[in-house]
Simulated assay, not measured.
Amino acid sequence: MNVQPTKIPEVFIVEPQVFGDDRGFFYESFNHKKFESSVGRPVNFVQDNHSRSVKGVLRGLHYQIGKPQGKLVRVVSGSVLDVAVDIRRSSPFFGQWVSVELSAENKRQLWVPEGFAHGFLVLSEAAEFLYKTTDYYDQPSERCILWSDADLMIDWNCVESPILSAKDASGTSLSNAELFE
């Protein structure tokens, strides 16, 4: 497993060691001991989620304020542009974001720690997105920052308007959002 920091040091790209031949491939998608060693702190995943979306769907920017979730995300079919936004007021990276293309082909994963808003845009005809979380989904704690917030200026590489849920279309601006200290 190769772990690369991004421009926000707590957000990591995880690249597994893939063993392939003419029969196919094998790789270890998660190893708790190696992951904690890479992150530098204990991490306990409690829930796995799986979503499928069609091209142009944008989900995010989601987070939970009362019960924050760290997320280890990956794509097993198709490709997405995955985005993490630092929403910790005390962070020197507050309001900054990183984006990474995750795909079934590159097998990359992204570690999005607690204190970050997260979203993704489907680039392929469809994509299946898997993620582990460090806390359970809690609807009363869920918040959404508007994907197109002018203060964030995220480059989603959208040629057309994305397909949004009602929740994502009505997200709040970063300046009006309930954030982490």
Rank of each mutant, 00 (worst) to 15 (best):
G171K: 01
E128W: 05
S53E: 11
V54W: 00
L58W: 03
E105R: 12
F120T: 11
D22W: 08
D149K: 03
V57C: 13
K67W: 00
S99I: 03
V83Y: 04
L174I: 11
E101I: 00
P9Y: 10
N2T: 11
G119W: 04
S90A: 13
I154F: 09
L164A: 09
V76F: 08
R143L: 02
L72A: 09
V14R: 00
H50M: 08
G66I: 05
L123A: 01
K167S: 07
S124N: 10
D168L: 10
H62P: 02
D21L: 09
E181T: 08
D151A: 12
G56R: 01
E15K: 15
E15R: 12
L152P: 09
Q96Y: 05
I65E: 04
V85T: 09
V85W: 00
P5V: 05
K167N: 09
E128N: 14
D86A: 05
K55T: 04
R88S: 11
E181V: 12
Y131V: 06
G70K: 06
D168I: 11
E28D: 14
P42T: 11
F93C: 12
R89W: 05
N157F: 09
S103F: 06
P92R: 03
N157E: 14
E114Y: 03
V54C: 06
I13Q: 07
E15S: 13
S148W: 02
R108T: 00
D21A: 14
E128D: 15
P162F: 06
L164G: 03
N31L: 10
C158Y: 02
A169E: 15
T134E: 09
W111Y: 15
S38T: 08
D135R: 12
A169L: 07
N44I: 07
R143S: 05
A84N: 08
N157Q: 14
A166D: 15
N49G: 06
S124P: 06
H32G: 14
K7F: 02
L152A: 13
H50R: 12
K67C: 09
E181H: 13
L130F: 08
F12E: 02
E36H: 09
V54R: 13
V98T: 06
